[in-house]
């Protein structure tokens, strides 16, 4: 066994030694130092980080949740619902309005994930009812599994819908 092999072995198996490693360690000062350093690092593990106290951890979840609430994607929601106020979207209004009324009544009580699902369903319905050119990309890849959408994808769908809406407005 050479030094590199011994070091590699010690890195992977710090607490266990084979006969070969022990033999090498007995005759190699450099690897002994290497092992000593690994031992020191394990000692270092016992060093605690500054304890902020239980009071800190007992409020951390609540504070983080408040920040999550503050960072919920309100602008995206507003943009999405603003699509329904345009007259040229009348073709989807019947179902849209019902869904929106239902969603608005309940949406604030829902988790962010559930909200995304609602937005996803709304977008899906709109695209399904919409005979305009929502891009192929949206129809092919996004409709498959709307619930897995992340914010960027949802953003893309909304953009597509806005473009469609704009085109429809211009045609009118």
């Amino acid at each position: 066994m050479n030094c590199h092999e011994c070091e590699s072995f010690l890195i992977d198996n710090h607490t266990h030694n084979t006969e070969g490693t022990l033999e090498h360690l007995n005759s190699c000062t450099s690897c002994q130092e290497f092992k000593k350093l690994l031992d020191s690092l394990q000692e270092l593990k016992k060093a605690p980080v500054e304890d902020p106290g239980e009071a800190y951890f007992s409020t951390l979840l609540q504070r983080t949740r408040s920040r999550i609430e503050e960072n919920q994607p309100q602008p995206l929601l507003k943009r999405f619902f603003s699509l329904f106020s345009v007259p040229t979207f009348a073709f989807s209004a019947a179902l849209g309005v019902i869904l929106v009324v239902l969603a608005v009544n309940q949406i604030e009580d829902l988790s962010l994930f559930q909200q995304k699902n609602v937005y996803g369903s709304l977008a899906k319905e709109l695209i399904r009812m919409d005979s305009h050119d929502v891009s192929d990309h949206s129809e092919d890849s996004i409709l498959d599994d709307m619930n897995d959408l992340d914010d960027a994808q949802l953003e893309e769908i909304i953009q597509n819908l806005e473009e469609t809406m704009l085109e429809a407005t211009e045609r009118t």
């Binding site: 999550i68 960072n71 962010l112 914010d151």
Partner: peptide, 17 residues
């Protein structure tokens, strides 16, 4: 503290990914 909160915010918002 700031990093812990931001980390868990990311987790909450992106766990679906």
């Amino acid at each position: 503290d700031e990093v812990v909160q931001k980390t868990f915010m990311q987790v909450y918002l992106n766990l679906n990914t």
